[in-house]
Simulated scan of single mutants.
Amino acid sequence: MIQEPDAFEPEATRRDADVTESSRANRGWWDRNADDYQVEHGTFLGDDRFVWGPEGLDEVEAELLGPPEELKDKDVLEIGAGAAQCSRWLTAQGARPVALDLSHRQLQHAMRIGGSFPLVCADAGALPFADNSFDLACSAYGALPFVADPALVLREVRRVLRPGGRFVFSTTHPIRWAFPDEPGPEGLTVSASYFDRTPYVEQADDGRAVYVEHHRTIGDRVRDIVAADLRLVDLVEPEWPSWNTAEWGGWSPLRGNLIPGTTIFVCERDRENT
């Protein structure tokens, strides 16, 4: 799992964490760690690329939102935008993105890099937009792994999508929950139950959560999508490419060539559902 900075060493545990505690903990974590995150991952992400995950799958080749030429004049919501690299790429295609993130510090990095699109600091479970505001929505490892109620986020996304709109989001592949978060051979032996949904929590000495990550199985994700009245049209599991030699946390070519690391869910709001 992601590590706290050296200021203090939180206790890693598995326990329940509700919507409020998860949101508060993760807002604080990303505000504290945004600088280090951008230093560590900024080169890989670029300033204006659209990368779906650690494997390096690029929207230029994936076209999960549709052909780039069809993005022109589309209103697009990026959820969990971080420094808004994806929104910058969307702007270059002629789209009109809005970059939303829970972390104010992450959005300050978006301002530092620059761009001519709105930045919104808000929780993905309470999107501050009117119904039917966007043609497309996307989230590259944003929000969904960190929220206690992903179904609420999906319902909110459906609400702000126009009929026929598409939502594409990537998360850590659920199978990784069963393995240690180590890049070497020690990370290839099952050590936990895939079916244990108990959140991973890092907490301070007083028991206050400072980081929370939630696990959903593949079946859970599909059921959440269906319950939100969205239609799953594709599920992508990117393979680890030979050019990617990066290693950080539990991510490595060794693991990436043997087990999936990312799932990408491609969903649509039906046109007849108004």
Rank of each mutant, 00 (worst) to 15 (best):
E21H: 04
C267T: 13
Q3P: 06
G219E: 15
E9V: 15
L77E: 07
F146C: 11
A148Q: 11
P174I: 02
A92H: 07
D205Q: 05
D123C: 09
G115D: 06
E9N: 15
V153P: 08
V160S: 05
A25D: 10
L100I: 03
D229W: 06
P67I: 14
E268V: 03
E70D: 07
V153L: 13
G114M: 08
W243N: 04
E78T: 07
V201M: 05
G250M: 06
A95G: 06
D73V: 05
A17H: 11
L45D: 04
D31A: 05
D6G: 14
V160P: 01
G82W: 09
A122Y: 09
L100Y: 08
A25Q: 12
R271T: 09
M1N: 07
E186D: 13
P10F: 04
N26P: 15
L154Q: 07
F169S: 06
D229F: 08
S87N: 06
R162Y: 01
L144T: 03
C86N: 11
F179S: 02
T172M: 08
I264P: 10
D16P: 07
A110T: 04
I79L: 14
R32M: 13
T198G: 04
S116P: 05
T43R: 02
S103H: 00
T20V: 13
F195K: 07
N273Y: 10
L258F: 02
V98W: 01
V157D: 02
A148P: 15
R255T: 03
A122L: 09
D131I: 14
A99W: 05
R221Q: 13
T13E: 11
R216A: 04
D220L: 04
V98Y: 01
T172F: 03
Q38L: 08
A95V: 00
L65W: 12
R159C: 03
R15H: 15
P241T: 14
D75Q: 12
T189Y: 00
R208P: 00
S87P: 08
G207L: 10
R221C: 02
E156L: 13
E9F: 13
D270A: 13
D131F: 10
D224S: 09
P5R: 10
W240K: 07
L65A: 08
Y194F: 15
V168L: 00
D16N: 11
C86W: 00
G249V: 14
R49A: 09
V60S: 11
A95H: 06
L71D: 12
T43N: 03
F50Q: 07
T262W: 01
F265V: 05
R105I: 14
R255G: 04
S103M: 01
P5H: 11
S193A: 09
D205Y: 10
T198E: 00
P97N: 13
N257I: 01
G184K: 00
I264L: 02
G250I: 01
D35S: 09
F129R: 06
L144H: 08
E239K: 07
H214T: 10
E237V: 03
G125H: 12
P54T: 00
S193I: 02
A124K: 13
D75P: 07
D149G: 15
F195I: 03
I113Q: 02
L254M: 10
